[in-house]
């Protein structure tokens, strides 16, 4: 443990030199680079703050625009809803009118179809009735029915209206007037006599008579006097019934 003044002084100088050297080669460069980095970080932070401020401004602008758009959209939606409601009301009214028209048309159609169906049913019923009556009377036709039809003709002839009787007399007064007798079957002599007697009474004089058999008449007779025809046959009656029934429909 000894103090050497030379070493003491040299070490003081050495240390001061080392302080200068380290300041020159270590502290200053390192502090400079740290300062530059801090400056860069500060600059980056400032840039980031500026960017954040700009972003915030943009965000507020965006939110404002979004709010405006929302309000505009709400107004548009309300306007659209009003327009839709008005259009709906208009279309509903139009549809109601069309439905009423269609209902009326359908009712008319149904009525027409019902009438047609009724008419067809009537036709079918008449046809069935006519067919039934034709078959029934066809089976009932015979000499008895011929006689009865002859009786009916004689009775009708007696009760013939005056104007018809006059028309028959006019036809019978023609110079070539004759009687055309058509029967389903041959009449008996007695029946022919009764017929001729009744015609002579009605016409006031007798006429020559021609006879003809027509089985299609089924039963009864037909007497032609000029343009006139006195019919009391089953076929004529059925034909009269058919035409009468058709007219009634």
């Amino acid at each position: 443990m000894q103090l050497d003044w030379t070493t003491f002084l040299l070490q003081i100088v050495n240390f001061l030199v080392l302080v200068w050297l380290l300041k020159r080669f270590l502290y200053r460069p390192v502090l400079d680079v740290i300062a530059r980095r801090r400056e860069g970080i500060e600059k980056a932070l400032n840039d980031a703050r500026d960017a954040e401020a700009r972003a915030e401004t943009l965000r507020q602008d965006y939110e404002r625009k979004l709010a405006e758009q929302d309000s505009a959209q709400a107004a548009s939606m309300a306007r659209l809803a009003d327009e839709i409601a008005a259009e709906r009301s208009r279309r509903m009214a139009k549809l109601d009118a069309e439905l009423a028209t269609e209902r009326e048309r359908q009712a008319a159609l149904v009525e027409k179809q019902t009438a047609d169906a009724g008419r067809k049913a009537g036709d079918a019923a008449r046809a069935a009735a006519l067919s039934f009556v034709s078959r029934l009377l066809g089976r009932l036709s015979g000499a008895e029915l011929d006689r009865r039809l002859l009786d009916m003709l004689i009775e009708d002839l007696a009760t013939l209206p005056a104007e018809q009787l006059e028309a028959l007399n006019d036809a019978a007064a023609a110079p070539d007037a004759s009687l055309q007798l058509t029967t389903a079957r041959a009449l008996s002599e007695a029946d022919q006599t009764r017929l001729l007697s009744a015609l002579s009474n009605a016409l006031g004089h007798s006429l020559p008579m021609t006879k003809q058999i027509d089985p299609s008449m089924q039963s009864g007779l037909r007497v032609g006097i000029g343009p006139w025809m006195l019919a009391a046959s089953l076929a004529d009656e059925l034909a009269f019934f058919r035409s009468g029934a058709r007219r009634a429909c």
Binding site: M1, L3, D4, T7, F8, Q11, I12, F15
Partner: peptide
Amino acid sequence: GDLSTTAALAIL
């Protein structure tokens, strides 16, 4: 480990 050096540093 030399007193002169440590004394120099202490004086500084």
